[in-house]
Nucleic acid binder design. Sequence first.
DNA 1: GTCTATATTTTGATAGAC
DNA 2: GTCTATCAAAATATAGAC
Lengths: 198, 198
Amino acid sequence: MEPEKQIPKKVITQDEILQAALKLFADKGYFNTSLTDITDAVGIKTPSGIYHHFKNKQAIASSLYGNILDSLSISIDDIRRRNRKSSEQLREIVDLLFKLTDDAPEVMQFLLTVKVSDFLPDEKPLLSTPAFLKIKKIFQIGINEGELRSTDALLAYTYFFGVINHTLKMVLMGDLKQEADHYQAQAWLIAWNTVVKK
Amino acid sequence: MEPEKQIPKKVITQDEILQAALKLFADKGYFNTSLTDITDAVGIKTPSGIYHHFKNKQAIASSLYGNILDSLSISIDDIRRRNRKSSEQLREIVDLLFKLTDDAPEVMQFLLTVKVSDFLPDEKPLLSTPAFLKIKKIFQIGINEGELRSTDALLAYTYFFGVINHTLKMVLMGDLKQEADHYQAQAWLIAWNTVVKK
DNA sequence: GTCTATATTTTGATAGAC
DNA sequence: GTCTATCAAAATATAGAC
């Protein structure tokens, strides 16, 4: 093992700030998280350092939100590329969300239980976001191709992700005691039945 | 028409404060609502008046939350008294929630889209609240009597209200453009199908 | 890029006159 | 029970030394 440097870690990266902020925002909420909380979590002594990386507190949240949605959008692109049927694509999206809930609960908390518009009023509403538009498109194609019941694509989305998101939220809040993974198979089946053509 | 009194309205009731606060909390969020906002909305000039009615800002929110949950609990009692089957009871609860969404959207916004635990950390979690426990009991009885599929009552709740709540949330956020009433019949059917024994 | 120190602003809350 | 006036605290943000 190498001898550890005596110099205390001082240099903070943007990513460390984002990770700490994400955890705090997900846990205590944006308004209950002060810049001091973030500096504490990240191991520096003053909020000053943060202003070298971000314009202000809002910019941290905005960056987080953007990153999460971008990453989600990319994953969805990938999923759509690898699967042709709407059922398969939705199946993989559900798989991704359940995995994220177990492996990166802060991310899903930020997506599902945090009301972003309260502190990012200028951000695009979730439903006009690329990630969401792609999901809506999956429903639309499924309807056109006859795999899904013919309703409004937005309504199909509403029912399907009503089941999925509520299940994940109950896990995140600790009301459902097992890992998300444990509920996935059944939740998928129930959600799928809300939209499938029989 | 009677001659209007010249004396400007000064005396404010507790209920006026609660109503104004509910609207503001639902609209802008608890943390974006200052006591000054409330005094403005209620027509007095200084936050001082509010402290004669409530201990502090939190107490306003706490009172609101309690009132809403109490009233919901009473409505559920009434519904359970008037109906015997779980299906009928759930049907009426759904009816109530859709009506509330159209007639008192602030109330439903407070229930569905506001994260109460952020500013009322000492409040009982929603799921250990009388209103919720009664709803859970309805599912449990439905399962025992064979009307509902045999799963965990909490899971039945999760799926059923996943559909219902998400539909109402989409209406409240303006993503679904019609009144809640317009979506009720189909949402009920979909939600019911997530739990019914076939 | 982090530190000390400080400026600025907001807001929750109180005291006392009327 | 509302008003004027004011306090106290907290948190965002900045300036300048190192």
